[in-house]
């Protein structure tokens, strides 16, 4: 088993290194005693102190989290439904609609949604408009993953459940959902990271007076990004890690309780 996977482990280690070397730089420089992200000068917590006294940046991080959580929740539910529907039924319109936002350049989606919100809906821009915009472009990502999971899956499982008298809902809840759960989780994670990072669509759909993280960071480029941004990035990663671990624990807890009940 181990020997068979030796080359796999090697390749995977390289890929993980590729993923983590830039990240290490981000984290390390958040403790660096220099305004420039250029070389190691000395250890300091200065940038974290700056961050924690920067009410605007913190509010921005909070707002971004709320947006990312809401948008990824919405996109995961809608995207999962879309993925299931596309796989199960011969639909013509939905697939095109689901995948088109993925294909649309962000700036176009941003401007068109802005025009739509202001001139058609007459909506006051705010958190809600950003959440809707993010949900729109995340749905496709979720649906694509769900569909990839469903494709080639053994249909006889679902048929067997139905033959045994399970209702459609029961089949979904106890057969389909557990089977596609890894894809659902992957889609949710993907939506979360897409949303928390998006500058273009966020810029166009955000309201006034609400700082949002990517905007704060992107507009700092004019004056060169300081390690404060590294610090907020580091904390965001820790936070994401925590949320995922808590979710995983809750899930395994629920699973073991369910197993005990049976």
């Amino acid at each position: 088993m181990i020997r068979r996977h030796a080359w796999l482990w090697g390749a995977a280690a390289l890929v993980y290194a590729f993923l983590y070397i830039p990240l290490a730089i981000v984290v390390i420089y958040s403790f660096n005693d220099s305004r420039l992200n250029a070389e190691w000068v000395g250890f300091t917590l200065h940038w974290y102190r700056v961050l924690f006294s920067d009410a605007e940046m913190l509010a921005a991080a909070g707002n971004s989290l709320i947006i990312a959580l809401s948008a990824s929740l919405g996109a995961t539910v809608l995207g999962t439904m879309a993925g299931l529907a596309i796989h199960r039924y011969r639909l013509r319109v939905l697939p095109a609609l689901v995948f088109a936002p993925v294909a649309m350049p962000e700036i176009l989606l941003g401007v068109s949604l802005l025009l739509f919100f202001l001139q058609v809906l007459n909506l006051t821009l705010g958190m809600l408009s950003v959440i809707i915009a993010h949900t729109t472009f995340c749905i496709g990502f979720v649906a694509i993953i769900i569909r990839a999971r469903l494709q080639g899956m053994d249909e006889s499982l679902f048929e067997a459940a139905r033959d045994l008298g399970a209702s459609r809902w029961q089949t979904f809840r106890f057969v389909t959902l557990p089977l596609i759960m890894p894809a659902v989780a992957a889609g949710a994670l993907m939506s979360f990271t897409l949303s928390i990072d998006d500058f273009v669509i966020t810029f166009f759909t955000k309201g006034i007076g609400e700082p949002i993280l990517p905007i704060q960071i992107y507009t700092m480029i004019k004056v060169a990004v300081t390690p404060e941004v590294n610090a907020v990035s580091t904390l965001l990663m820790l936070l994401t890690l925590a949320m995922i671990i808590v979710a995983a624990r809750l899930e395994s807890h629920a699973a073991s309780r369910e197993a005990a009940r049976r």
Binding site: F52, A55, E56, L58, A59, A61, G62, N63, G209, E210, L235, L238, L239, L241, A242, M243, I245, V246, R249
Partner: peptide, 24 residues
């Protein structure tokens, strides 16, 4: 692993507390 969630939750709480003091 078990230590990480609590660590990160602390960071989150700090962020949230600071972020909650919304100046607006």
């Amino acid at each position: 692993l078990p230590a990480l969630p609590s660590l990160a939750l602390l960071a989150w709480l700090a962020l949230a507390a600071a972020g909650c003091a919304r100046p607006d």
